[in-house]
Amino acid sequence: MLKGLLEHIGIEPGRLNFSWISSAEATKFVDVAQQVAASVKALGPARYLIKKRAEVA
């Protein structure tokens, strides 16, 4: 549901990814890693929600 909300606000769908991979599934891990990297790369650098000013407590 967070993904849905972020997309609603304007974060592109490909930026946030979820997956289930068992510890025995190294090949699936590599697969998904490639997908995730490709989808984020396709979107280009993040533009929104980056805090530009320094954090002050």
């Binding site: 997309e7 609603h8 606000i9 304007g10 974060i11 592109e12 533009r47 929104y48």
Partner: peptide, 14 residues
């Protein structure tokens, strides 16, 4: 109505 916008417009709106 908002769902139909593209990400950039949505971000602008909010």
């Amino acid at each position: 109505k908002i769902e139909a916008m593209d990400p950039e417009k949505k971000w602008g709106f909010f």
